[in-house]
Design a protein around this nucleic acid. Structure first.
Lengths: 143, 143
DNA sequence: CCTATAATTGAGACGATGTCTCAATTCCGC
DNA sequence: GCGGAATTGAGACATCGTCTCAATTATAGG
């Protein structure tokens, strides 16, 4: 069973219909690179299924976020991007000058998740970590 | 020297003019609650200085982010909010169903920051952590 | 203090992004 | 298949952020 099929199951088990727009959005997220903008996703969806409307893409993204299957991140800017939670888990170091980002894998938050879940009665899905700074190249240049 | 004056110094030392719009935006951020939206900030600025334009508020927020004095966060949604980095350091546990958030203080990322700074040559300003899940109240309800 | 000058601003057009409505369609349990 | 509730597509609408450009303002240097 591929990751995509797992997601399809989640949708159904949560009591939602597995419609064509939802399938295509999930496939696009699974095939595409991480951190796609909504516009990226709309256009990729449109290539596979030209008759899927923009609104449905937004609605599906919303649903996937509510179900904890997709995460939003901004990488320090106002541009929101979407990524599958089950994708390769990683975080970002972001240069706030040039917006360049570096991925890193270190993640010591499993214990924290566990502690928060117990303390506040949450069912925890995942988390986001972004570290901000100025990259080497930008440190010399004028801010 | 208050926190606000420290920020004024940062602006000047980075080679930027300390203009009225910039002063007012910083004051608003310092006085207001954390996580204000751009609209919140524009309206608060407008109360103190009606002649400051919307564009300048956005430009100032941009500058403050670039300088590492302000951070953007979304709390899992598409709504971006702004907060001063020097404010009380905390993170969020977010319910992706009802958007309710819980603040928490635990933070073990100082070492990670240090390691990343060395490994990638970044000058690190700060970081963002958001943990996602479903709160107790929403666990029963239909998703 | 005054002046020169480069940075910054305000206004509003513009563009991008996200939401809403509602008739038409589609998925799914029977 | 069939029925009916959930979902969709289209595009108007609302919100959010950016850009341009003439006018203004903060600061360095005399």
């Amino acid at each position: 069973m591929t990751g995509v099929e797992t997601l399809f199951q989640h949708i159904r088990q949560a009591g939602y219909k597995l419609t064509r727009p939802r399938q295509v959005v999930i496939e696009v997220l699974a095939d595409g690179h991480a951190h796609m903008t909504a516009a990226d996703i709309v256009s990729a969806v449109h290539q596979r299924a030209p008759d899927v409307g923009r609104a449905s893409v937004y609605r599906t993204l919303d649903l996937l976020v509510r179900l904890g299957l997709v995460q939003i991140s901004t990488l320090g800017s106002t541009t929101t991007t979407y990524m599958l939670v089950l994708a390769h888990h990683h975080h970002h170091l972001v240069c706030t000058r040039c917006r360049r980002t570096v991925e890193f894998d270190e993640c010591q938050l499993a214990e924290l998740e566990q502690a928060l879940a117990e303390q506040f009665g949450f069912q925890v899905y995942g988390h986001l970590v972004e570290v901000y700074g100025v990259c080497q190249r930008c440190q010399g240049a004028s801010p």
